[in-house]
Design a protein around this nucleic acid. Structure first.
Length: 548
DNA sequence: TCCCCTGGCACATTTGAATCGC
DNA sequence: AGCGATTCAAATGTGCCAGGGG
């Protein structure tokens, strides 16, 4: 039986401790509870004395917080869309000579589907079946601690998609669902082989990076934040130019005021109005306040327009309120459809706990899967699949529980906090998850993939707990970030005992800049294509690092 | 009718090859 | 020939919007 320890750890083991005067400013006073996953397997001959000392600080945390306060939305498209703000971290505390792999996964934050209603995110029902879990491995992986600490570690090329059959290795998400990105640092030096039982890892979660995936922006405030901060969206800055541009788009010679502009101007006017309200100038105007409050169906608990608590979702009080009041009147149906609770309710301490508690089997087999070396077009896709196979037996599978040691260590967790969901009927296509320059594949074993299925093996990173296992329930404090560290979780062999397949090319540089000649000849990878795919699931193949 | 998704659009940025000068 | 700076075009990343499907 896998036995995990849930322990409170100090900031030395925590993400974003903010110590040492990092450029980002994680609040030093924020207590953090970390989960230490310590499977009861033999410890490494060489203790992982460093992994727990790694500190991670979220870059541009203030920007993230801005988005978070507004309710971050991330566009997902069929072709894949980058995240903005992009996930960048400053890492410290690594052993400069030890090699690490940095990767990100994005897990459901809860089991709800959301809808944007009355300028708030509301629970709209149960979540759809989780998408195949994929991991984005930083293209520099593996690299020495010195390399990671030298500069910001950017995951800006990570892409999100809603294409269930995405062949590019992008992270697959469901629209209108809430997700939480997580950063994993895996020790991968020769004494701690990638995929070995003794592989140490740390998991870092920055709660301000949680977001709701959408196919088009719902919250105008988020749109504005994106436009203001994303350089690629510069073309949408500036009202006058915007109007002219819209007119050009519509083939008109005269300025056309876009809906966005209308919203913007309503916001402006409302800001002005709100300011007057705040000063009491218009505080008695019934048509302004009461209409919205009644429309929401929520009696005003506080008539003070400045009261930020009366609604957890800030923009419900933000200047775009007026626009959404208009919109709401056309959408009274929303009121009947059960706008159950505001999105930010789930960001509360309770929801955080719910989030982790409701994630019983955050499973993965990241490290036990062979490469899938089919050619892909993505330039920088860098994904692992965390796909489970149907052999993965879900939360209730006691076999996996009792079999835990090697199996669990072998199957690194990702996705599937809701193992009851399956994606039967959605055949999962082997996808791209490449390891661009990390290592050389010495063999490739075809890997049967299957649906994400509701049945998952019992292994996790310690962030989630199984609802049926005997693990202690992790308790997550509502801090801005958390992390978990484990001295060993990644097994070198899967349950069938296959040896690792993933060998680092002897003498390969940290960034060989794509020496692909050594990759399997069966691969259809274009030499010019830096995208390599790494299939991850419950493969019988493991991975292995061998430094020479 | 409504909600959500898709594809095409124009614009801005990024990237890398080509060119030039030293 | 080698190196660095500059230029330019293609690729890529954006949000917007009309239209379509469920």
């Amino acid at each position: 039986m896998l036995q995990e320890k849930v322990s409170v750890v100090t900031d030395e083991c925590m993400a974003g401790s903010g110590g040492g005067g990092e450029e980002t400013d994680l609040l030093p006073d924020q207590s953090r509870l970390s989960l230490s996953t310590a499977p009861s397997i033999p410890s490494s001959s060489e203790p992982d004395q460093n992994i727990e000392n790694i500190k991670v600080v979220l870059h541009e945390r203030e920007l993230w917080k801005k988005f978070h306060e507004a309710g971050t939305e991330m566009i997902i498209t069929k072709a894949g869309r980058r995240m903005f703000p992009s996930y960048k971290v400053k890492v410290s505390g690594m052993n400069p000579k030890t090699k690490y792999i940095l990767l990100i996964d994005i897990v459901p934050a809860d089991d709800h589907r959301y809808k944007f209603c009355d300028n708030k995110w509301m629970v709209a029902g149960k979540a759809e079946p989780a998408m195949p879990g994929r991991l984005y491995v930083h293209p520099d992986s593996p690299a020495t601690g010195a390399h990671w600490m030298r500069q910001l570690v950017s995951f800006q090329k990570l892409k999100l998609t809603n294409n269930h059959l995405d062949p590019f290795g992008h992270i697959i998400l469901n629209s209108m669902h809430k997700y939480q990105p997580r950063l994993h640092i895996v020790k991968a030096d020769e004494n701690n082989a990638f995929g070995s039982k003794n592989t140490a890892y740390c998991t870092h979660v920055f709660h301000e990076t949680a977001f709701i995936s959408v196919t088009s922006y719902q919250n105008h405030k988020i749109t504005q934040l994106k436009i203001e901060n994303n350089p690629f969206a510069k073309g949408f800055r500036g009202s006058e130019e915007g109007d002219l541009r819209v007119s050009r788009l519509q083939g008109k010679d005269y300025p056309v005021i876009s809906k966005n502009m209308v919203r913007q101007r309503l916001i402006t006017s409302h800001s002005h109005l709100a300011g007057k309200l705040g000063t009491g100038v218009l505080s008695g105007h019934p048509s302004v306040l009461s209409s919205y409050q009644y429309d929401t169906g929520v009696p005003p608990s506080n008539s003070d327009p400045q009261d930020p608590i009366s609604n957890h979702f800030p923009q419900s009080r933000d200047p775009s309120l007026l626009y959404h009041c208009f919109k709401h009147r056309d959408n009274t149906r929303h009121l009947e459809l059960g706008c159950k609770r505001p999105y930010l309710d789930t960001s509360s301490a309770v929801s955080e706990e719910h989030y982790f508690r409701s994630a019983p089997a955050y499973e993965s087999s990241l490290l036990s899967h062979p490469y899938c070396t089919e050619a892909i077009n993505s330039r920088e896709a860098c994904m692992y699949s965390a796909m489970d196979t149907e052999s993965g037996s879900g939360v209730g599978d006691t076999d996996d529980l009792t079999n835990s040691s090697s199996i669990n260590c072998n199957m690194w967790a990702t996705m599937q906090p809701y193992p009851r969901y399956g994606v039967e009927g959605v055949p999962y296509q082997p996808f791209a998850a490449h390891f661009p320059n990390a290592a050389t594949v010495t063999s490739v074993v075809p890997h049967p993939t299957s649906s994400m299925g509701s049945r998952q093996p019992q292994a996790d990173l310690g962030v989630y707990n199984s609802s049926t296992s005997q693990r202690a329930l992790p308790i997550i404090t509502p801090s801005s970030s958390s992390s978990s560290c484990s001295p060993s979780i990644l097994g070198s062999r899967d349950r069938s005992g296959h040896p690792p397949l993933y060998h680092k090319k002897p003498g390969s540089p940290l960034r060989p800049h794509r020496d692909y000649s050594a990759y399997p000849t069966q691969s259809t990878i274009s030499i010019r294509d830096p995208s390599y795919q790494y299939q991850v699931g419950l493969s019988s193949a493991g991975t292995h690092w061998t430094d020479s």
